[in-house]
């Protein structure tokens, strides 16, 4: 009986080890093989009771401006594939979406949030644009508990005058944050500087 219990315990421990191992493996794969994109962001600093302090990232481009597909069939939380490219300034932006992963372009596996409308002025004319908001699956950047609040302050100041962005690697639709930059420096480096 004891042998049986011990065998079952070993099986359980193997499963318990496999789950975190698989998490690491998938993230390492994205970091090694993924294409790098820069997402413009604005940081906020909250805390998680289990994982510690992090900088919450509020992305400027978390919507798809226009799409060729109809949004009528979409419900909140539906999984979609957002197609992305780099804009003129080299930052990531979404330009279309599909229900299946596209074969010939970069895409992010994400979820549909809601429809929204925004106004853009172009050549003195105000245009009403329909957009769909998506959920970006990389909104946390964990930091040292002492550095995180300082990093958030510095990056928020930096975001007002210069660009603050997150370097994100994307591979087969899955994403992993590599680093967050403000004033052209990694956030941890910026927070460590004495000012």
């Amino acid at each position: 009986m004891k042998k049986l219990f011990l065998t079952l315990l070993l099986v359980l421990i193997s499963i318990q080890l496999y789950v975190p191992f698989q998490l690491i493996r998938s993230k390492e794969r994205i970091l090694k093989k993924g294409q790098e994109f820069r997402f413009l962001t604005r940081p906020i600093d909250p805390a998680d009771p289990f994982q510690g302090r992090y900088v919450r990232l509020q992305f400027r481009n978390d919507f798809i401006t226009q799409g060729t597909n109809s949004v009528h069939s979409l419900k909140r939380g539906t999984q979609i594939y957002a197609h992305l490219k780099e804009d003129e300034q080299g930052f990531a932006c979404f330009y279309d979406w599909s229900n299946k992963p596209p074969a010939d372009r970069a895409y992010l596996k994400t979820r549909y949030e809601r429809n929204r409308r925004s106004f853009r002025i172009q050549d003195g004319v105000t245009n009403r644009i329909s957009e769909i908001q998506i959920d970006l699956p990389f909104d946390r950047f964990y930091m040292d508990e002492a550095k995180a609040p300082r990093a958030e302050r510095l990056a928020a100041t930096a975001a007002r005058t210069t660009n603050c962005w997150a370097a994100v690697r994307i591979y087969e639709g899955n994403a992993a944050i590599e680093e967050v930059y403000a004033e052209g420096k990694p956030l941890s480096e910026l927070a460590a500087e004495k000012r």
Binding site: P20, I24, K27, D48, Q51, Y54, D139, Y142, A176
Partner: peptide, 15 residues
């Protein structure tokens, strides 16, 4: 729980 949380922290896995 600690192990999963720590890996989440290390790889910035969203909450």
């Amino acid at each position: 729980g600690a192990s999963i949380a720590l890996i989440g922290q290390t790889y910035h896995i969203p909450g």
